Simulated assay, not measured.
Amino acid sequence: MPSSDASPFTMGPALLFCPADRPERFGKAAGRADAVILDLEDAVAPADKLRAREAVLAQQGAGGLEPSRTIVRVNPVGSPDFELDLAALAKTPYRTVMLAKAESAAQLKALEGYQVIALCETAAGVVNAASIAAEPNVVALMWGAEDLLASLGGLSSRNDDGGYRAVALHSRSAVLLAAKAAGKEAIDAVYVNIPDLEGLGAESLDAVASGFGAKACIHPNQVAAVREAYAPAPEAVAHASELLEAAAAAGSGVFQFKGKMIDGPILKHAESVLRRAGR
């Protein structure tokens, strides 16, 4: 596993985007979610970018957002606003940055000194996900569906039944595999159908079962559904605890537990359950 100069990503499971030009929403977003993403990119109109940066700058001192639970999404490298975003960030205590439309490992050099969540949401970003994940200052990869399809000249990431198209599913898997191969965290894309909490819950269950460490939200009402999906059931926690106790008693190697053969991968699943339970 490649070494990293950045600390492990520990935010989650529910990350909530908040437009950076709406400071009156910052506190509510931070209070509802496990971490807030102050968005300087797509959620802010070009004419309001300056006001958004000023709002982020104002969140300092007493009453400001907790840096360990705050992410700032900056504009893409090479865009007119990227350097302005960095100049503003340098004056804040926030050191976790989400890089919009990350497309190459070279782009991460501009963010040395920051812990970076690289948002792979273009064809180039997905294709280069492995090299991006290997950069020392990258702590996590996230993928984005709609910008990805736009970069392909497509129309929508989802079929009429609400499920992802094949190219979106491929990209989701590619980003997850690249992140985990590099020992980094993976964050699942937002669910844009805000009223459909049942669909969000199902997608969140798939995200945690697949290995995504967190899922991003675009509305406070989505947070509870994500958290519920990531919280293991009490019986699952009890089973995992019993299994790991039996493993400790058995020593090394394969052993039998409640009529089933247990080996290393199954023990890792149990450890994951306890981590999600906060144990």
Rank of each mutant, 00 (worst) to 15 (best):
P2G: 09
S3D: 14
S4N: 10
S7K: 12
L15F: 01
L16A: 13
F17C: 07
A20L: 07
R22Q: 14
R25A: 09
F26Q: 05
R32V: 11
D34N: 09
A35F: 01
E41R: 06
K49W: 02
R51F: 02
V56W: 04
V56D: 03
A58C: 11
G61I: 07
G63V: 03
P67M: 10
R69V: 00
I71P: 00
V74H: 03
N75C: 15
V77K: 13
V77M: 11
V77S: 12
L89A: 03
A90N: 10
A90P: 06
A90D: 15
A90M: 14
T92Q: 12
Y94M: 12
L99V: 08
A102V: 05
S104D: 08
A105T: 08
Q107I: 06
Q107T: 01
A110C: 10
Y114V: 14
G125K: 02
N128K: 03
N128V: 04
A133E: 05
V138G: 09
V139H: 06
G144Y: 01
A145G: 12
E146I: 00
L152H: 01
L152G: 04
G153Q: 05
G153L: 07
G162P: 11
R165P: 02
A174M: 08
L177E: 12
A178Y: 02
E185Q: 15
Y191P: 01
Y191S: 00
V192T: 14
G199P: 00
A202Q: 05
S204L: 07
V208R: 03
P220Y: 00
Q222E: 06
V226A: 05
R227L: 13
E228Q: 13
Y230P: 02
A231R: 15
A231T: 15
A231V: 09
P234E: 08
E235M: 01
E235K: 14
A236N: 03
A238V: 01
A240V: 05
A240S: 07
E242P: 04
A249I: 01
G251N: 14
S252N: 12
G259S: 14
D263I: 13
A270C: 10
A277M: 09
R279C: 09
